[in-house]
């Protein structure tokens, strides 16, 4: 499991070499979104008001940003759960030309298939450490603030060695958490056994 320091915009080559379990630190430019933005674009037929080809790193996140002396100040940042955006995941990868999505948890099979086809990965945080991250992030700009509100808007970030994140979906379609699930299931069987709950245990059906 290797460690990579990458700069966005990311190339296909940058992400094709990443494997699940690798650690990444990220620099360059990025943008944020949550579900309201994806719904606004993909379900409600609006057009994204910026170009993502030179900004192909998406961070699922609803930051706290306040305005001080006419400048944006990032108060807190933590990647949010990607799994709930699965509905629009493959579309986002395809239509926005993404190379990496950073978010808590992971994404589903459809997004993983699009990532494999087009060359994109998903990476997940290993801590809840907003204060170690906000110093690595500069707020550059914001789009759709009036339409979607502060949390759901698309924030443009300039980032510097933001991380560490673990690659949990690679461009071969592997999922780090699926692998881990197999081990967890084994441990679960042992833990239940220890409590006297065998594999033959069935809940009494009440309805």
């Amino acid at each position: 499991m290797a460690e990579y320091h990458l700069t966005s915009p990311l190339s296909e080559e940058d992400v094709r070499r990443l494997r699940i379990g690798d650690t990444v630190y990220l620099s360059g430019n990025a943008f944020t979104c949550r579900s309201r933005l994806q719904k606004y674009i993909f379900d409600e037929g609006n057009t994204l008001p910026f170009d993502t080809r030179e900004r192909n790193l998406l961070i699922h996140n609803g930051p706290i940003v306040i305005k001080e002396n006419d400048k944006w100040r990032l108060v807190s940042f933590m990647p949010t759960s990607s799994i709930r955006f699965e509905k629009w995941g493959a579309k986002s990868v395809r239509e926005w030309g993404l190379r990496m999505i950073v978010g808590k948890t992971t994404m589903g099979e459809e997004t993983a298939a699009a990532m494999k086809e087009l060359g994109c990965v998903h990476a997940s945080p290993r801590s809840v450490s907003p204060n170690l991250w906000i110093d690595s992030i500069e707020v550059e700009d914001v789009y759709l603030f009036d339409e979607l509100g502060s949390i759901e808007a698309a924030w443009f970030f300039k980032i510097n060695e933001l991380g560490p994140f673990v690659v949990d979906i690679d461009s071969e379609g592997n999922n780090y958490f699926d692998r881990l699930d197999e081990q967890i299931d084994e441990h679960k069987r042992a833990a239940l056994e220890k409590l006297g709950i065998g594999e033959d245990f069935k809940f009494t059906k009440l309805y």
Partner: peptide
Amino acid sequence: PDARAGLAATLESMDMSSVRKNPLCVDT
């Protein structure tokens, strides 16, 4: 070791929040 580093980073960030008076996590 990765989990240990993650726990330590989380604690460090939480301790910084008491000083900076900012939210422990972005989701309040």
